[in-house]
């Protein structure tokens, strides 16, 4: 830390974005990547076919505050909690955000399981950036 207060307050939010598992729908994630970048966040885009291990490794290496996962093939109830557990097991203080096709009843299940926020289809650029800032633990 430099001790410069303004610097610390303005520290950009660092987000690791990934598709966890086999799902190849990456349009939404790429759009979110650009929205966050345009909104002043730093984006580490891992892309397709990531495992919880590869995501954790990226978070540690890049000192990220948020993991953004995109899910479009109904695997979220299994995969998202697995990610949350992997974060806890690694002793990291990192929020997990899930975006994609998440049926309403599952949103609460995911939040109860420790997911910090769920972004539905149609979330605007402002909403995406605001949610990223609000869940960032910096």
């Amino acid at each position: 830390m430099s001790g410069d207060e303004a610097d610390t307050a303005d520290h950009p939010v660092r987000v690791v974005l990934a598709k966890l598992g086999l799902d190849g729908h990456d349009r939404g994630l790429k759009v979110v990547a650009r929205m966050l970048r345009d909104g002043g966040c730093e984006v580490i885009y891992l892309g397709l076919r990531q495992s919880t291990e590869s995501i954790i490794a990226a978070v540690e290496q890049e000192d990220a505050d948020i993991i953004g996962l995109s899910m479009h093939n109904a695997g979220h109830l299994t995969l998202a909690p697995k990610m949350v557990k992997a974060v806890a097991d690694a002793g990291l203080d990192v929020s997990v955000i899930v975006g994609g096709i998440i049926p309403d009843p599952d949103v609460k299940t995911l939040l109860d399981a420790g997911v910090a926020a769920v972004l539905g289809p149609g979330a605007s650029s402002d909403e995406v950036v605001a949610i990223a800032r609000s869940v960032s633990r910096r």
Binding site: G21, L22, D23, N73, A74, G75, L77, T78, L79
Partner: peptide
């Protein structure tokens, strides 16, 4: 990948 592959977890028969 087969249904018993570790990458298949959570995705079997879903989509």
């Amino acid at each position: 990948r087969d249904s018993d592959d570790e990458w298949a977890l959570g995705e079997v028969g879903r989509a």
